[in-house]
Amino acid sequence: MPEDPIAHSELAALTRRFEEVDQKNDREFGIIKSDLTAVRLQVGNLDQKVDRLEGRIEELGQKMGRNQAQIVELLTRLVGQDPNAS
């Protein structure tokens, strides 16, 4: 049975198209993988920043508590004192 040149050329064209699409998909997958790696690094950096901020917020809360305690203590000392007395 002789080969059909039209079928052979169609098969070759389909093979080329498949290979082109496959290469394009490989490139796009590589880009997506690279972008995903970059996003993971950014998320890791953000996690570290959040951890540092949480520590700072805790420190500020402690300072505010101490300041409030000092204010209450000072106001308690002032209660009942003559404002004109030195």
Results as ranks from 00 to 15, higher is better:
M1E: 15
P2V: 04
E3L: 10
P5Y: 01
A7L: 14
A7N: 06
A7Q: 09
H8E: 14
S9K: 07
S9W: 04
A12D: 12
A13G: 10
R17S: 12
R17L: 11
R17W: 02
F18S: 10
F18G: 11
F18T: 14
E19P: 09
D22Y: 02
K24R: 01
D26C: 05
E28N: 03
E28C: 04
F29P: 05
G30Q: 00
G30E: 00
G30V: 01
I31S: 00
I31K: 06
I32K: 02
I32M: 03
I32V: 07
K33Y: 02
L36P: 07
T37K: 03
T37Q: 04
A38F: 07
V39N: 02
V39L: 08
R40N: 08
R40W: 05
L41C: 10
Q42P: 13
V43S: 08
N45K: 06
N45W: 03
L46C: 11
L46E: 02
L46T: 13
L46M: 13
L46S: 09
D47L: 15
Q48V: 15
K49D: 11
V50P: 12
R52P: 06
R52H: 03
R52W: 01
L53W: 08
R56E: 15
R56M: 12
I57L: 14
E58N: 10
E58D: 15
E59M: 12
L60R: 02
M64D: 10
G65A: 15
R66K: 08
A69V: 02
A69C: 07
A69T: 02
I71N: 07
E73D: 12
L74F: 01
L74Q: 09
L75G: 07
L75A: 10
L75I: 10
T76G: 13
T76M: 08
L78H: 06
V79K: 01
V79L: 09
G80H: 01
G80A: 05
P83M: 01
P83E: 03
N84R: 07
N84A: 14
A85Y: 05
S86R: 12
